[in-house]
Simulated assay, not measured.
Amino acid sequence: MSEKQMLEQIITKTIDTVGASREEIFKIGEHSRNEYQELEKELVEVRLKVGELIDRADRTDVHAKLARSRLVEVSKNFNKFTNEEVRTAYEQANEYQVQLAILRQEEKQLRDRRDTIERRLLTLKDTIERSETLSTQMSVVYNFLAGDLRQFGEIVEDAKEKQEFGLKIIEAQEDERKRLSREIHDGPAQMMANILLRSEIVERIYNEKGIEEALREIRDLRIMVKASLAEVRRIIYDLRPMALDDLGLVPTLSKYLKTFAEHTKIKVRFRNIGKEQRLSQQLEVALFRLVQESVQNASKHANPTEIEVKIEISEKRAVIFIKDDGSGFDLNEKKEGSFGIIGMKERVNMLKGEIKISSKLNVGTTIFISVPLITE
């Protein structure tokens, strides 16, 4: 067996081992996450039961005090009451005392269960966070071992840059998956859980407080459902605007930039200079992502007050011009955020186009993108 074959065999076994370990870590995380959600539901129920028991115990305590007072009165004036009245007073006092003891014991057991659940939730949360971190690290290792970084050889000149670029792409993919997972869990999933809980409470409110309170709770539920639906639509739109397939690039950009301006409070001026026409699906998605990446980078890093976006589609080329009046940056300075620019350049290169970026500190940044319209 040659050295090359031995090396390939070692790498293959390593990839299999890393892949299996990654799957096991993922299963541990999923199991912990499912248990966490189940315990969250149980904690809500236990807290409700504790509140109900406290109310019942308080009412029983009042009855027990009255029964004891009655028993004291009967004991002091024994000759004034019949044997039946004395027996009844004693039995009632004893019965309420027993009921109160039972309720206090149930309350203590529920409080202990509540404390146990809360401690378990803290442990599970730590386990979930650790498994996510380990899973991301293992995925980076797995993809780096299994991937072929030679495709970046023409772009990245030396081995160190090649390694950094490949790892950054993999890390960005994993971070995006994690962000999306957390966004769904903390947004729509959490809202749906609250809606489910609130819907179970409606009937109780109706029985205890009447139709008006129940209707008010239902109206609050409707608001939560609308908010959840809007959040789901926002997440889907960020992944891939459906309007891109239906309306095309220019209308979708117009809609996106309008929404972007409303959310960021940045003034955005959008102009379509050329004719409005449909392009290939791949090209429309790529151009949309380039504009999206540009305006998001400006918003995140440059703190601009105004962004200008112009697009011109001719018979042979699509040209995009993005300009902001933000803080700008030094093009020769290599910093953490520069990976976004590298990704944009790579995307333009894949389209056989050109991209020019000019920036001045405290003046702003201008991005010029030109891509040929290649027809099959």
Rank of each mutant, 00 (worst) to 15 (best):
R216V: 04
D186Y: 10
R22W: 13
D186E: 12
L124M: 02
H63M: 13
N194Q: 11
G340Q: 03
T88P: 04
L43G: 04
V268D: 01
R347E: 08
T12K: 14
Y237G: 01
V250I: 15
I170F: 04
V50N: 10
M1S: 13
K352F: 06
A57I: 04
L103A: 10
P188D: 02
L43H: 03
L244T: 01
N207P: 08
Q173S: 14
N297P: 02
Y237Q: 05
D220P: 00
R216G: 01
Q99L: 14
N79A: 14
I25H: 00
R104S: 09
A230K: 04
S294E: 01
K108C: 05
I10G: 09
S299K: 14
K334F: 09
R70H: 15
D158S: 08
Y36R: 12
K49F: 09
K300S: 12
E203P: 09
V74C: 12
F81G: 03
K41F: 07
I266F: 01
K334H: 11
K41M: 09
R113P: 01
E171V: 04
G187L: 00
V291P: 02
M1T: 12
T365F: 00
Q92N: 12
A193V: 01
R70F: 08
Y206R: 11
S131I: 00
R59A: 14
V250K: 01
L221W: 06
K13F: 05
L373F: 09
K160M: 05
L122M: 09
R198V: 06
A93E: 04
Q109S: 11
E262K: 14
E42P: 01
R198W: 10
E306W: 04
R216H: 11
N77C: 07
I54M: 10
V371H: 00
E118I: 05
T264A: 00
K4F: 06
G166I: 00
P241F: 08
A298I: 07
